[in-house]
Design a protein around this nucleic acid. Structure first.
Lengths: 215, 215
DNA sequence: CCTACCGATCGGTAGG
DNA sequence: CCTACCGATCGGTAGG
């Protein structure tokens, strides 16, 4: 319980005589990222509570205690999954908006919607769905962290929706419109089936046709 | 540490031939329903996995093993919560549609939306939100049971949306429209706050303005 | 419905 | 990162 820690405490973490690792396992960053990916997949499939840290360890060929070398607690791992998801989502969104001019809100909203579908439904994109559906398992500090990232993400929608409102393409209040539109998209995680549903482009067309007036 | 325990150990806690029950506890059906209500509330607040059967028992003043007198397993209790929610939702929806004529799809859709908000966000209506967000914890048989009830519920929307499509109030494909509209509504469970958000009537207005064309 | 209990699982840790 | 382990909790049950 004292603050004093043996100085040599963890310094030998690597080196000393480690067995040679395969390419995939060579550096810590890589192992850590494998844990993140496996956790995202399992959390999405089974839920956070129903996934044990042993499941995650086994998925990347570790032993039961080893994930705690990379993440202090199970919910820190969950939080890291969500952060990773939000950073990727924000990057994808920013890139998508780069292709349209700022005075073309119809083109902008289409790209926002399409990028959002990619984030939610693209192959291997489990990180953001986990964030949407396992929010409850975070502690207050983690929740605040993620709320800030989510606010960043959603902030990009507001000026676009305001422009659409001004031009008559959107009739409902902007704030509620954003909540309902994002809700409609987010819910697709529940029913979308890559083998049976429409393509992401077709979903985007349907959403645009559903929400926007022709003028 | 032996298994032998003094026989008089705690038996007198409420003495020999059962103490008189209060009105609320008198019959089994009532106790069972108390369990359902408490479970719905806790499952909604904490999630299914994070709620123990002991939590539920305590919430209605039972001891830890007693819920299993009323429900065979924990997921049977979850399933019963969801069934209760769907039966109430279907009844509410049917009643709502009784007030409009079948040839007035605008009036019908408004009532369907308003009834859905009541089911999701009305005070004490925890049953359907649990169904929406704890689907994963059911076994396959239970899932099929609930899927049938959900199909019943959603079937009422299709002819209304088809009529709106025919009259030009809806431009997107009917099936995708239903999925996106219900998704937009269902997601409100995540952000709606009775103390800060708009009223259910205002939400209904916004949804109608958002999805339907003026013609 | 209560009592007393079991077997299993789980997050997490010390120590190397 | 592995080994060996702990304390706690949990769903569920027998027997009354």
């Amino acid at each position: 319980m004292t603050a004093v820690v043996s100085p040599s405490h963890e310094e030998h973490k690597r080196a000393r005589g480690r067995p040679p690792k395969t390419e995939d396992e060579r550096d810590d960053g890589n192992r850590r990222h494998q844990l993140l990916t496996a956790a995202a997949r399992l959390f999405r499939r089974q839920g956070f509570d129903a996934t044990s840290t042993r499941d995650i360890a086994a998925a990347v060929g570790m032993h039961s205690g080893s994930p705690f070398y990379h993440f202090k607690t199970k919910d820190a791992l969950l939080c890291a999954v969500m952060e990773e998801g939000m950073h990727a989502a924000i990057a994808r969104q920013t890139k998508a908006l780069r292709g349209v001019q700022a005075d073309q809100p119809l083109g902008q909203i289409r790209r926002l919607i399409r990028a959002h579908f990619e984030t939610l439904l693209g192959p291997g994109n489990d990180f953001v769905p986990v964030m949407l559906y396992e929010h409850r398992s975070l502690n207050p500090g983690q929740r605040a962290l993620l709320a800030a990232l989510q606010a960043d993400y959603e902030a990009a929608w507001t000026p676009v929706l305001e422009a659409l409102h001004a031009s008559g393409h959107l009739r409902a209040p902007v704030k509620l419109s954003r909540l309902f539109i994002l809700g409609a998209l987010n819910w697709s995680v529940q029913w979308f089936d890559r083998k049976k549903s429409a393509s992401l482009d077709e979903l985007t067309d349907a959403v645009v046709a559903l929400f926007l007036k022709e003028c």
